[in-house]
Amino acid sequence: MAKIRIPTPLRAFTDGEASIEVAGGTVGEALSNLVEQHPDLRAHLFNDSELRSFVNIFLDDEDIRFMQGLDTEIAGDDSLRIIPSIAGGNPPRSPHSIGGKTLVSEET
């Protein structure tokens, strides 16, 4: 079976396990089996049936988005890794107070 490495924040949903063995002939099948074993992972990996935009799946060192996506075929000894793309951003700006000063600025 292939192994999937779980990112640190999601290990709370795999009983603390960093690596989970799953069956499946494609990346999509492996992920489906993963969330079947650990259902609380689903909301953080998928938005409906699509991988969330900030969730990347690497097969060895290659992003599956640059392969065949969830249809990428895998062998029993392959290692997959779930890697979040960390991102953040300013809220739309509106009149507010910060540090005792009132800012009024346009939306960015």
Partner: peptide, 19 residues
Amino acid sequence: HPDSPSVPSEYDREHALPN
């Protein structure tokens, strides 16, 4: 958050993980 409060935005929430 340049010139904005130190509170999460909707964009932050959409791209965040628990724990």
